[in-house]
Design a protein around this nucleic acid. Structure first.
Length: 465
RNA sequence: GGCCACGUGGCGGAGUGGUGACGCAGCGGACUGCAAAUCCGCGUACCCCGGUUCAAUUCCGGGCGUGGCCUCCA
């Protein structure tokens, strides 16, 4: 089956055909760097990482360009920097670094380019000048505004008409706007706010509006029209709608991107995630409790367009399932391309990761080690057993006769040699049918986190999960 | 209020106009001194009401519920 993707604009699954198969181009809206990214932010990052991996597989790694921007100029950033009394640049750099660490822990490849808004002011101004020249934008009170009425099919992506939007407008309309739905391309900066010389003959220094940066960065790195544009479903309106308006009107094209993909929202324990409810989960915090692969698997077990409920129960379940898989992948195996083919087949159907995971379960059940391993790798899931536990959880691993510990240092209460001695003692008690002594030793080991497994080939042990 | 999604067994979660995916839990069994782990087996679900159809969980309409957007939030 060929790759088919659901396109928000046409509201249907369509066979994916890149404009240029030697250069598949994808743009995804990245974070605004003012605070730790939350678990909801992780969804598009993971989902589009899977798509990136799939496209690399289908078209070759060198033929796919994935651009994910960093928004480092924004009112929330200004506010947070002022609140903390730190320079804006320090805040955005620190936050970006944290984001990068989080995303790497989630098993995501780095995008081909990670452009920053502040490094594309020139491109934004060029776009704004063009829009003003072609009467798609106008200057009013030192702002530049996009004239929505200049674009007949504005609203197509979010499927809303101008009349509806005007009727439904709940915000008070700024007096300098010609039309209630016109949006800001450039606005004046107050003293202390980041500012640049303004375009369109405006004397006062200013800064860009929210939407123009993505039009500028996608243009710079991918061209006027490209293949895929992705992001969270909440960005459909107004952000993506406005990006389309800016780019299409600036370049006089019929489309900005050929496929618009949007991931669904996430809830936490059945409730909307919000700081006031107190269930606001950052990626960083979740990584304390779970390895990145567990978070990733938990995210991918639901199709990307479906809503997802982020719960402890599910995370536990995924942690256990992943443990079984990673344990199995430690055994030797021959290369097996069936695994890749099967997973690609599942993903080709609009990135059906849930089905892909079902296929992995089949590989596990049939003990197809190689297929399981390559399948997991294609989904970006680590096959390393150490990737299960979070940073705060200590787990010991027995490797080549040594015990190694992940996470912070722990007090070793027993050495591997002593474990062997206790097992021997227990086994002699068992052969003497002294089961109370045998069970006592087993319990003693259990309190140290050592779990015994009796098989006909003898007794083995592992650390409690 | 307007627009848009979603509603599947105890839980999670695919999918389909007509043979009950898959995982967890649960139950039964094998193995075991007993466990643990593992393996085998077991489940007639598709929010409600209409309509279309030989046949609907799947299509259409209405209702209810949940969520999202309409305020620079993935």
């Amino acid at each position: 089956m060929e790759l088919r993707l659901y396109d928000t604009l046409t509201r249907e699954k369509r066979v994916f055909r890149p404009l240029d198969s030697a250069r598949v181009r994808m743009y995804v809206c990245g974070p605004t760097v003012y605070d730790f990214a939350h678990i909801g932010n992780a969804r598009p990052v993971i989902v589009f990482d899977v798509l990136f991996r799939l496209l690399r597989h289908l078209y070759g790694a060198k033929h796919v360009k994935y651009v994910r921007n960093i928004t480092d100029v924004d009112d929330k950033i200004n506010a947070r920097a002022a609140e903390r009394g730190v320079p804006i640049r320090d805040l955005t750099e620190e936050t970006y670094k944290n984001f990068k660490d989080d995303v790497a822990a989630l098993g995501c490849l780095e995008p081909t380019v990670e452009p920053r808004a502040t490094e594309h002011i020139a491109e934004m101004k060029t776009l704004i000048e063009r829009l003003v020249e072609s009467k798609h934008a106008y200057v009013a009170e030192e702002h530049v505004l996009f004239a929505v009425s200049s674009m007949p099919d504005y609203g197509k992506l979010s499927n809303r008409s101008l009349d509806e939007m005007i009727a439904g407008a709940r915000v008070e309309v700024a007096p300098y706007k010609r039309n209630a739905t016109d949006f800001v391309l450039w606005k004046p900066s107050k003293p202390g706010e980041p500012s640049w010389p303004s375009p369109a003959g405006i004397k006062a220094p200013g800064r860009p509006g929210w939407h123009i940066e993505c039009s500028a960065m996608s243009w710079k790195h991918l061209g006027e029209v490209f293949d895929i544009h992705g992001g969270g479903i909440d960005l459909v309106f107004p952000h993506h709608e406005n990006e389309i308006a800016q780019s299409r009107c600036a370049f006089h094209t019929g489309a900005m991107a050929n496929y618009w993909m949007h991931n669904g929202f996430l809830q936490v324990e059945g409730e909307k995630m919000s700081k006031s409810v107190g269930n606001f989960l950052t990626i960083n915090d979740q990584l304390d409790h779970w390895g990145g692969s567990v978070l990733r698997l938990n995210m991918l077990k639901t199709h990307y367009r479906q809503p997802i409920d982020w719960t402890q129960t599910n995370l536990k379940e995924m942690g256990r399932e992943l443990t079984r898989w990673t344990d199995l992948t430690q055994s030797n195996s021959e290369d097996d391309q069936d695994g890749v083919r099967t997973i690609v087949e599942a993903l080709n159907d609009d990135l059906n990761t849930a089905d892909a995971i079902t296929q992995l379960r089949g590989f596990y059940k049939s003990k197809n080690v190689s297929a399981l391993r390559v399948g997991m790798e294609l989904l970006g899931l680590s096959t390393d057993p150490k990737s299960i536990q979070g940073r705060k959880h200590k787990r010991m691993y027995v490797e080549a006769g040594h015990i190694s510990i992940t996470g912070q240092s722990v007090q070793l209460t027993i050495a591997p040699g002593s474990i062997e001695k206790l097992i021997a003692a227990r086994n002699s008690a068992r052969s003497a049918r002294n089961f109370s002594e045998a069970d006592r030793i087993r319990d003693e080991l259990a309190t140290m986190g050592v779990v015994l497994k009796d098989s006909k080939d003898g007794t083995t042990w592992e650390l409690a999960r």
